[in-house]
């Protein structure tokens, strides 16, 4: 059991948890800035970014993928701004135009190009394949100290670990400016903070987190990681620091519980096959959000009664 766990479940759980945390951290700020749907838009445009990067370089190495997806996110944000200004259209509609068109382009490119040699297909891109990120060389917990086994860890683990660490460090470094620009943009501007640049940086970090998580959970379920844990955390507390900790806890819980339920849950109720882990992670995060919306101590708006209006 334990050898099998290390081999089949340890790495997916780690990858899922790190991906969830990497997305939830920027998600906190996106939600407070009422830009939750930027996360939605980004996770859709990651696909064309990755496909174009693959077509240009011919590999699915980490760095070109990250650059491609980051560039796609920046292009999408610029396009949304441009359409909003030129057409005087409301942001939601401008966003809807841009991300659907780019996503459609990505799917078409993917179908047209020969990606049979690499692990890149439409279904995987949409739903992710967390359960395929296994550690075949492991023989048990002792493998954690065995350099030859460690050398064959799935490369996705190292990638998401680096990205998660970078997101954590960046959040810690830019905590004050992020906090200030999120809550009082006018004040932040008067004390000389580069408000636009900080907003843009947040979007780029979210894009990088999205592409790293893309491997694990696919482009749609990434949105759940961006929005559900921070949204649930927002219903628990009024303090940003506390909210961020809650969101990390909820993200980890969703990832771990979701993976276990997907892998072992069907066996408990007598079915033979596991179900989609990424889908289950999203489902669990949704259940957590639902519980927070029903029972969270800070669920209603300021000025309304505890039970909501």
């Amino acid at each position: 059991m334990s050898a099998e766990f290390v081999q089949l479940s340890l790495t997916p759980i780690l990858i899922g948890t790190l991906a969830a945390i990497a997305c939830a951290l920027p998600g906190n700020f996106l939600i407070l800035r009422k830009q939750a749907l930027i996360g939605d838009a980004i996770s859709h445009v990651v696909l064309p970014g990755i496909v174009v990067a693959f077509l240009l370089t011919g590999t699915i190495a980490a760095v070109p993928m990250l650059i491609g997806a980051g560039a796609a996110a920046v292009v999408a944000v610029l396009l949304i701004e441009a359409i909003k200004r030129l057409g005087r259209i409301d942001p939601g509609a401008a966003m809807g135009v841009v991300f659907t068109a780019l996503f459609a382009g990505g799917v078409l490119l993917l179908e047209q190009s020969d990606t049979s040699g690499v692990h890149l297909d439409v279904e995987h891109a949409l739903m992710g394949s967390l359960e395929s990120l296994i550690w075949l060389d492991a023989t048990g917990w002792s493998s954690l100290t065995d350099p030859t086994a460690l050398a064959h860890l799935p490369p996705e683990l190292a990638r998401i670990a680096v990205v998660a660490a970078a997101v954590i460090v960046l959040t810690w470094l830019f905590w004050r400016p992020l906090e200030l620009t999120t809550f009082d943009e006018g004040f932040a501007r008067t004390i000389g903070l580069p408000v636009t640049a900080i907003g843009f940086g947040l979007v780029v970090v979210a894009a990088v987190a999205a592409v790293a998580a893309f491997d694990a959970v696919g482009s749609i379920i990434v949105i759940a990681m961006f929005i559900c844990p921070p949204a649930a955390a927002r219903l628990m507390t009024d303090r940003l620091t506390v909210q961020v900790w809650w969101s990390v806890a909820f993200a980890s819980l969703s990832a771990i519980l979701g993976y276990i339920l997907a892998g072992y849950g069907p066996l408990w109720i007598g079915l033979n096959d596991a179900v989609s882990a990424a889908g289950m992670v999203a489902t669990v995060s949704g259940v957590i959000l639902m519980l927070a919306a029903l029972f969270g101590p800070r669920r209603s708006r300021v000025g309304e009664g505890k039970g909501g209006a």
Binding site: A36, D40, V222, A224, M280
Partner: peptide
């Protein structure tokens, strides 16, 4: 009913329902 804005609600519903559908 909650303090969450409509955009967060849209994103949450969209991704969770899709995730459950994938399951």
């Amino acid at each position: 009913r909650t303090r969450l804005a409509e955009d967060a609600a849209i994103g949450a519903v969209l991704s969770v329902f899709f995730g459950f559908g994938v399951v």
